[in-house]
């Protein structure tokens, strides 16, 4: 069981168990989250996405160092893909974060993407709430930028970094449109490994053609994590974006959008579950299926009939 008072006082064991409850979709997690919610809302969330090997974990590690210099308590959620075949996952992001392993001001949690669609985004958002209530001032969320869930998570962050590398096949034109659009800051990491000029020109051209939400044009920062280059610049840019969000009103607007989205998702999930339950517990569906197979009814009419029944409960 989770001792909420201990969690709020910064007990690592409790925070860790709370995140497991969320990941395992434990029935008591809703109650837990309701109790934690009043203690949330004080954290800055930074999403970090990009191809495997781009240097996301190394950047998270380096940014954590910057945050610790300002005495901020740091949470890290590092997401790696779950194998669709075995259901298992190899979570190796900690390898790059060893420097902070014993720092009580840093809490690192690795997560697998696990199965269900939308489940990852849900679990990540709730894990953020746990770490927020636990007392973190800043949370880094590392995901591999591929699926819809990962994009959803990045929408949830206050500031999203899209990490690219020169040379290694990261061509701006071929990167999925969705991923380029969520960037608040572009990071060209491994700037030591190739010519960054072409990549910068390409990004700038793309930015010239797109409209910038709230008037923030995503800046491009070059980094070399292995040589500690560009990191104070990146950190300062994160703080600049935070300030911009606050003064322009984007912060509040984003939060409202996020909350609306979150409630809508929860509602949809609940309705879906109810619907499944209702359909599996009465035989109506099967009668209708028979009628459709016999061509006495069409699928649209059947769905309308079931919807009417469902809404009248």
């Amino acid at each position: 069981m989770i001792d909420i008072d201990k969690l709020l006082a910064g007990d690592r064991r409790m925070a860790a168990r709370a995140i497991s409850m969320i990941e395992d979709e434990d029935e008591d997690r809703q109650k837990l989250l309701s109790e934690l919610f009043p203690h949330t809302g004080n954290v800055l969330t930074i999403g970090i996405t990009g191809s495997p090997g781009a240097g996301k974990s190394s950047l998270t590690d380096a940014l954590t160092r910057q945050a610790r210099q300002q005495d901020l308590k740091v949470g890290i959620i590092a997401v790696d893909p779950t194998s669709p075949i075995s259901g298992g996952a190899l979570l190796g992001d900690r390898i790059r974060m060893q420097e902070h392993a014993l720092d009580r001001g840093v809490f690192i949690r690795s997560m697998g993407t696990r199965g269900c669609l939308g489940g990852l985004a849900r679990a990540t958002k709730d894990a953020v709430k746990v770490l927020d209530a636990f007392g973190c001032n800043i949370i880094f969320i590392e995901t591999v930028g591929v699926g819809q869930s990962e994009l959803d998570i990045m929408h949830y962050a206050d500031t999203t970094l899209v990490v690219l590398t020169p040379g290694a096949g990261d061509h701006v034109q071929t990167i999925k449109a969705g991923i380029m659009e969520i960037a608040n800051i572009f990071v060209i990491n491994k700037a030591d490994l190739g010519n960054t000029g072409k990549m910068i020109t390409d990004i700038e051209q793309m930015l010239d053609m797109s409209s910038h939400h709230n008037g923030w044009r995503p800046p491009i920062i070059k980094t070399v994590t292995t040589e500690e280059k560009g990191l104070p610049e990146l950190w300062n840019m994160i703080l600049t974006h935070k300030e911009y969000n606050e003064t322009s009103g984007a912060q509040k607007e984003n939060e409202r959008k996020r909350v609306q989205q979150e409630v809508q998702e929860l509602l949809e999930e609940k309705i879906q579950n109810q619907l499944k339950l209702k359909l599996s517990s009465n035989g109506n569906m099967w009668k209708l299926v028979e009628s459709i197979v016999e061509r006495n009814m069409d699928p649209y009419a059947a769905a309308n009939k079931l919807l009417k029944e469902f809404l009248s409960i």
């Binding site: 779950t82 194998s83 075995s86 259901g87 298992g88 996952a89 190899l90 979570l91 190796g92 900690r94 390898i95 060893q98 392993a101 014993l102 690795s110 697998g112």
Partner: peptide, 18 residues
Amino acid sequence: RDAGMEVVYTGLHQTPEQ
């Protein structure tokens, strides 16, 4: 992992505290 577990791997040279 192939047996279906989530495996956190931390790399070389870990102290007991880590």
